[in-house]
Design a protein around this nucleic acid. Structure first.
Length: 591
DNA sequence: ATAGGGTTAG
């Protein structure tokens, strides 16, 4: 700029070079001001000037300005220039004017790879991968950038296997992958946890001297960690000469993923400039590893440090609330989420539904669900599940049917389990059977052990014991222990000695494998009044050193969770609690 | 003197 301002002789090239220099440094407003000066000076801008100016408009977020520039472009006759049109398309896409972008593209007399790639990226950005692929297949000419664009989008949209296929096809067609493409494919391989191919690419990267690239080496760290090799990941991380915050985040995330939370925390504390992804990684890590106290601890620390939580943060922390069924914390976070404008995010909404449902406040779940502008598979699942598990079986089934009518979301295993659960709790035996039998044909999911167990439970509860037993014995794989005990408890309820005997025998075989089996069997004998058998089992368990895992309940008082165990009376205020109970009992008697 | 593609978290 110093030279530019002191040079009295300007031509288009020097003006354009100056404008472009500003744009490249992100000084869009200055670039536009300089462009106005250029116009005042009477120098005629050319095609290169326009591409730079349009880029400045895009960076500045000014579509109106871009349109006036368009007028100028038409007036000066550059509207059919390929570079100018390409820049225009990019501007439109940045401003969300997709229809206009497409119109400009269609009206271009000549198109080059850049034009095709830009429009390809538009469909990809709209989430329309099929249309994007069609454009990709129809492109008259491709270069490594168009290949990379398509590969990147497949990888980012949850189709890493398709990305890998395309990458191999690209290599077969003689295109040499560049740095970006290698970073993308390593990230896809990380998602696929394909260590074998990943290591091949790593070797290739070293051979061509790309291992110092920050993008590539960060992806390598991610690859090794996703494949469970945190040591190799750390090796790649330590050998990096230049680290970005993404490199740090990948390594921290790698430790979290592999349950090494202490290592994660140590590394996290040494990140030079953590961003919100770094924080979210730690929050998510503690959540995944079920260290719920730490979830809230890190979240509070995050707020204290002045880092702005985003939708990802709230979805994790709310999930933590759901896990400990803390309505108080959850409501508080709901308020914070609204304050940060994240309440309409799908993930946040879904976490809210689940949190309210797990805390027993199903009305609030329903409110959140109804107000969600966008619902995905998980949103529907947690709502259907929440209704079923809170005793609103009919509503749960109605919602499931509504989903099938109105949404493109396909039923998944978990939803179908909730549906069966709902049927079991309303005694809708035939509906249950119908859902169960249509699982594979209509919904495309093979029934798993849990579905069989639920179905056996439905049949047994209603006394259709022969059908239940037939179903159990016809299973293509080993049933869950629970399934046999469901049958047995049906037998004791409906007084069927014959099936009970054979089922009990089967259960006896299974109990050897786990203590839960003993407990179930003893409970079933107890409910049938066979106390001698109960005693026998208890004695057996004692002999084998097995301990029944105790029941536990808890309440939350003033943000603190108090646990009570059935066999371990260790609460610090136990005496006071019993005193108060005694007092209450006395009060009730007095009435 | 110019336009298109890159790594991490829910």
């Amino acid at each position: 700029m110093w030279y530019f301002e002191r040079n009295p002789f300007h031509n288009v090239v020097s003006w354009t070079a100056a404008i472009n220099g500003l744009v490249q440094n992100g000084l869009n407003a200055e670039a536009l001001k300089l462009f106005l000066k250029l116009l005042d000076s009477g120098v005629r801008p050319n095609d290169v000037t326009f591409t730079s100016v349009l880029r400045a408009c895009a960076g500045f977020g000014e579509i109106g300005l871009g349109m006036s520039v368009l007028g100028l472009i038409v007036k000066t006759g550059f509207e059919h220039n390929i570079s100018v049109s390409n820049s225009l398309i990019t501007l439109c896409l940045k401003m969300g004017e997709k229809a206009l972008a497409r119109r400009i593209f269609d009206q271009m007399e000549k198109k080059d790879v850049v034009s095709w790639t830009a429009i390809l990226d538009m469909y990809v950005g709209m989430g329309d991968l099929r249309e994007a692929r069609q454009i990709f297949d129809e492109m008259p000419e491709r270069n490594e950038v168009s290949w990379s664009a398509m590969i990147a989008r497949y990888s980012q949209s949850g189709h890493p296997e398709e990305a890998l296929k395309l990458f191999l096809q690209m290599s077969r067609n003689g295109f040499v992958p560049n740095r970006s493409c290698l970073a993308i494919i390593l990230s896809a391989l990380a998602t696929l946890e394909d260590l074998r191919v990943g290591m091949n690419i790593h070797a290739h990267v070293v051979k061509i001297g790309y291992e110092k690239d920050v993008f590539i080496s960060s992806s390598l760290v991610d690859l090794y960690c996703k494949c469970g090799k945190t040591k190799d990941g750390r090796l790649a991380f330590d050998s990096m000469l230049e680290k970005s915050v993404v490199s740090w985040n990948s390594m921290v995330g790698g430790y979290c993923l592999n349950g090494q939370m202490e290592e994660a925390k140590v590394l996290f504390d040494s990140i030079p400039a953590p961003n919100n992804v770094s924080w979210n990684t730690m929050v998510g890590g503690y959540l995944e590893n079920k260290e719920f106290d730490k979830v809230f601890e890190v979240f509070n620390e995050m707020l204290l440090c002045g880092e702005i939580p985003n939708a990802s943060t709230f979805s994790s922390v709310l999930c933590g609330c759901a896990s400990i069924a803390s309505l108080e914390k959850g409501k508080n976070l709901h308020g914070k989420a609204i304050k940060h404008g994240t309440q309409y995010d799908v993930f946040v909404g879904t976490a809210l539904i689940d949190m309210y449902a797990k805390s027993g406040d199903i009305e609030s779940s329903k409110k959140v669900f109804d107000r969600m502008p966008e619902k995905n598979e998980v949103s529907w699942t947690v709502m259907i599940q929440g209704l079923a598990e809170n005793g609103f079986a009919e509503e749960s089934l109605l919602l499931f049917e509504e989903m099938n009518r109105t949404s493109i979301v396909a039923p998944n295993e978990l939803m179908l389990l909730s549906v069966l659960f709902a049927c079991s709790h309303t005694g809708l035996v035939d509906d249950g059977l119908q859902y169960f039998n249509s699982m594979e044909a209509v919904y495309g999911t093979k029934p798993k052990g849990r579905h069989y167990t639920c179905m056996v439970d439905i049949l047994s509860r209603s006394g259709r014991l022969v059908e239940a037993e037939e179903l159990l014995r016809s299973m293509p794989f080993e049933p869950e222990t629970n399934a046999w005990s469901a049958l047995l408890s049906g037998c004791s309820k409906h007084k069927n000695e014959e099936i009970a005997e054979s089922t009990a025998k089967k259960l006896w075989e299974l109990v050897d494998k786990n203590s839960a089996g003993y407990v179930m069997l003893s409970n079933i004998y107890a409910s049938a009044g066979r106390w001698v058998d109960v005693l026998n089992i208890r004695r057996l368990m004692k002999d084998r050193g097995l301990k029944k895992s105790g029941g536990c309940s808890w309440v939350e008082v003033k943000n603190e969770v108090h646990c009570f165990y059935s066999e371990d009376a260790s609460h610090c205020q136990l005496a006071e609690i019993y005193d108060l109970l005694e007092l209450l009992r006395f009060e009730m008697l007095a009435i």
